[in-house]
């Protein structure tokens, strides 16, 4: 076969492969792109209380800037994000170290440690709602049996965000621990042997060797948790529905209510796209950080 004929056959094969895979590619792209494009389009529409729709241009976005509830929701979202992320990273690393060093821990105990994140969030939310009920719940009973004052937990505008952060951390710290444990197991043993020969204390070894080497893994865990935390919905909706008052009304909860309870789909779309932009921004920032700490 001549070179030209071989090239033609190769080109034809490529063309055939492209034609065969095109429907799958088009379908996949459409499945990803359509909801996003549709939401962008909805963000430029306005819906009356009766569902009548009309083009609004950027009106939804200008409303957003002057909407006190939007800024409040943004603040609540960020506060919950920071508090939960810090708790989950700190306790996640600690739990990973415990699991890594406690080699003789029975499998069942290890499974128990990491079981909360396997629980459906709705079940977790309902369970904590009962435990934290100020009148009937076990949490206040335990506090009072130690002579401590009871708390209103989810019913207190002051304590609702720390309480939700605690519930989420209870559920997702094991997930962070699992990621960090993977990172710990892949660290080179030679570095530790060198540190041991040099007589480094366990704390110094952790601070100077383990933590810097683990940072890329921790940042990866932070990225994964950030996306979830900024879009946090299920547990809040189950436990407080954004209350008391508006004390736990995150952007996601606010957007949901505007869209599905008040039927203002256009404004809800604008809110959700803004939240999506924030999530993207956070992921990009963490990715940069990940690049900076890579070794």
């Amino acid at each position: 076969m001549s070179d030209t004929a071989a090239t033609l056959t190769q080109d034809r094969q490529k063309l055939e492969m492209a034609a065969l895979s095109a429907p799958a590619v088009v379908f996949t792209v459409a499945m990803i792109a359509f909801p996003v494009v549709y939401t962008i389009w909805l963000g430029f529409q306005t819906f009356s209380s009766t569902g009548k729709q009309s083009f609004a241009g950027l009106a939804n976005y200008s409303t957003l800037i002057s909407d006190v509830e939007f800024w409040h929701g943004l603040w609540i979202t960020i506060a919950l994000f920071v508090l939960s992320l810090v708790l989950q990273l700190v306790f996640g690393v600690w739990l990973a170290l415990v699991l890594f060093h406690a080699k003789r821990l029975p499998g069942i105990v290890r499974s128990l440690f990491i079981s909360p994140f396997m629980m459906p969030p709705v079940v977790a939310g309902m369970m904590w709602l009962v435990i934290l009920d100020p009148s009937l719940g076990a949490a206040n009973y335990i506090l009072q049996s130690f002579g401590l004052p009871p708390s209103d937990w989810l019913a207190s505008p002051t304590w609702v965000i720390p309480t939700i952060a605690l519930i989420d951390s209870w559920q997702w710290t094991p997930y962070v621990a699992l990621i960090v444990l993977g990172g710990l197991q892949s660290l080179p043993p030679s570095v530790y042997e060198a540190a041991q020969i040099d007589g480094a204390s366990p704390f110094k070894t952790f601070r100077r060797i383990t933590l810097p080497l683990l940072l890329p893994t921790i940042v990866t865990a932070a990225i994964l948790r950030s996306v979830d935390l900024l879009r946090f919905f299920d547990i809040i909706y189950i436990t407080t529905q954004g209350g008391p008052g508006n004390a736990s009304n995150t952007l996601n909860i606010y957007g949901f209510r505007v869209g599905f309870e008040f039927f203002n789909i256009g404004y809800a779309s604008a809110l959700m796209l803004t939240l999506t932009a924030i999530v993207f921004g956070a992921v990009l920032a963490f990715n940069r950080l990940r690049g900076a700490v890579a070794w």
Partner: peptide, 14 residues
Amino acid sequence: PPGVVNYSFQQISA
């Protein structure tokens, strides 16, 4: 009851 701001029919009945 304490925490009444989170009370709807389920909590009241219970």
